[in-house]
Design a binder for these strands. Structure first.
Lengths: 204, 204
DNA sequence: AGAGTTCTGCAGCGATCGCTACATAAGTCA
DNA sequence: TGACTTATGTAGCGATCGCTGCAGAACTCT
């Protein structure tokens, strides 16, 4: 099949699929089933390509997950980076929880958070991916803590506030919301809870 | 091997292992690796018995998990039932969070909560167990909500309080703590966060 | 046109999955 | 003792796991 003859195009037979779209579908499969629960058969079926093409394009399952997690972080998980740019610490906390709730309860998407349910527990074969997600969650916490530290320096938080503790509070609620969403709890109830959780800000 | 001749004892060859102790070891394996991550080989190795004995004594892997979850609920997860007997709503909430933190960060035990990381995401083969754990978590929430409703009826909570919202707040923190513990966050930091989270009680 | 490069479909690799058939061991009955 | 019942060890079932070899297809080069 002659797709199109380009001059100075890449050498060799061109790909018969859109790698970006395939990766996006892999995100959904990992998100829904977790790293170990998403078999190569499930993945390739969701991506619409053969195992050969998947391995040629993405290396192996672990690498595919790595790239899927990056994509998730920039896409459905992008609310975190946006939230960190809110002008106040309360605004940051509010945006994080609202973003978590929206992202984990979006209709026609997997319920929950890929960074939480991707590999919370795993067999020995999934150890590396489990540790990758631990680092992902801890990185999220660190970025919130650093943002709250800045807020403290700017006088946006009381002098006696502990940025690490506040960050732990917000991320714990966020991870907890992800678990609740994976249990089928609806968006409105979680949002009402989040509103209440931030009504006395900052805690402690 | 002649173990001991009882009169009127159970007919047939007696078990060569302690079923209770084997179940307890199965709890640890499921707790650490999750339902699908704990293979029959891992399980039987941890339990110290053969697959034949495991299937004869516990039925199949799904049934073994069911029994392990019961054991977990009564053992490491027993803090919930105890907490519900605290005289005040604040006492209940405090005990739940403290119990969660203790249980999910116990040295020489798996980190996290079996009810959360047992099967937060799974393949199609783990669908039933995943739904079993969803019910387990939702039951936990319901029992807390009912306890807070009682507190409201008793005047232990302000009349404008919403027991469902308060229960959602406490369970969300509890599930979030389980995720943090699975990420290696230490006990003291989580307890400081929990203290702060309940300093303004009830929220909203 | 022919060489070189890359992607695709088919087929199947060794390993492990959950689970079981079968013979034997170890008990309680009459 | 011999019939009956239950547990154990061995050995292996069909299915699926992640992954790959290979031949041919589809392109860009000279």
């Amino acid at each position: 099949m002659r797709v199109g003859t380009k001059q100075n195009g890449p050498i060799g037979r061109p790909r018969g699929f859109d790698a970006d779209e395939a990766l996006e579908r892999a995100v959904l499969a990992f998100w829904e089933h977790g790293y170990e629960g998403a078999s190569t058969a499930i993945l390739t079926d969701a991506m619409g390509i053969s195992t050969t093409s998947m391995y040629a394009a993405f290396g192996n399952k672990k690498e595919l997950f790595r790239k899927a997690l990056e994509r998730y972080t920039a896409g459905p998980g992008g609310y975190l980076a946006q939230a960190l740019e809110e002008p106040t610490a309360l605004g940051v906390a509010t945006a994080i929880l609202a973003g978590t709730i929206r992202s984990t309860t979006r209709p026609a998407h997997p319920q929950g958070c890929m960074g939480v349910q991707g590999a919370l527990a795993a067999s020995d074969a999934g150890r590396e991916v489990r540790e990758l997600l631990i680092a992902w969650r801890n990185d999220s916490h660190s970025s919130v803590r650093e943002r709250f530290q800045r807020a403290l320096d700017e006088g946006d938080l009381p002098a006696e506030s502990d940025p690490a503790l506040l960050a732990r509070y917000v991320t714990t609620l966020s991870f907890g919301i992800a678990v609740q969403a994976a249990s089928g709890v609806c968006r409105d109830e979680l949002q009402a809870m989040a509103d209440a959780a931030l009504r006395n800000w900052p805690p402690a």
